[in-house]
Design a protein around this nucleic acid. Sequence first.
DNA 1: TTTTCTGCAAAGCTTTTGCAACACT
DNA 2: AGTGTTGCAAAAGCTTTGCAGAAAA
Lengths: 163, 163
Amino acid sequence: MNLIKQEDAGLDSRLNAVVLKIKKLGYSLTPQRFEIIKIISESKSHPSAIEVYNKLKKSYPMVSLNTVYKNLSMLSSLHEVREIKTLQNSVHYDGDTSPHGHAICEKCGKITDVKISEFDFKGFFETRIKKQLTESFHVRNYGVEFYGLCGHCFDLTGASAQD
Amino acid sequence: MNLIKQEDAGLDSRLNAVVLKIKKLGYSLTPQRFEIIKIISESKSHPSAIEVYNKLKKSYPMVSLNTVYKNLSMLSSLHEVREIKTLQNSVHYDGDTSPHGHAICEKCGKITDVKISEFDFKGFFETRIKKQLTESFHVRNYGVEFYGLCGHCFDLTGASAQD
DNA sequence: TTTTCTGCAAAGCTTTTGCAACACT
DNA sequence: AGTGTTGCAAAAGCTTTGCAGAAAA
């Protein structure tokens, strides 16, 4: 119960933060845009543009896919949404912009979040990698991706498919 | 001098390893295929399919883009080439399949390798992340991506573009 | 000789662009 | 009122598919 409340609070504050940023920058907050932000914030499944579109159509049947694309790329350029490139040829979106990892199944394409505490990653980053980068590259965000087989696909094919 | 020799040896052995694997698995080694493998092994710029195609045309002017796609996706499924999804909507290919990171410029799309010694990442991975994953997910490879601005783009726009 | 691979053409998908009408502030 | 946004349609870009002829084992 406590957990659920905390999660909801987290979502609401994320939603609010994005809404505020948009207003602050002078963009308008259309109902479609708001709903898109909401869908992305609430979703845990890293949806693609089409998936967002399909959800959005439930509230706005006349909405166009174009609108979804425009809003997602706007949110992405504001760094309020993270793009994930999967093995399928489409971009998936992640409303959680804090540093964390993804486990991506090479068979079914499923994306699972991997928690990497800021503490852990910063430690690794600061001690090992930063010195290589700072002179020439200015990091805004980072991601760790694991490629392999999810439990389900492993059970089906993993046992026999040894390199 | 020493370094150059070592690098060449590295490339040759990579090339050989891939060729051997292909033969071992019963696939044929056509000249086009060999050249594609060579281009990818030698390239340090993470080329896209079209870029590989353009290089390949110098040796095989009649080659089709289709052939490039088929071979790259074959190499990818054999895990002898790594796909990198960039911000541009195209897949880039990396002939270095060992664990290492990429710094991707959000402005110009340039991809730079980030050395992460196997030792460093394994340590981080084993102590912090593995326990989250092993039960449900079977890792085959991992990558660390840094998003931000390369030195050049930062000099142009970075100073003024503060969130 | 059999299987795999190539090259050409066409189709498929995702994403982008152009533009008039509309909505937000 | 003015600018930003939407929705429709069309175009563009990357990747895949189908198939006959050619090449590899």
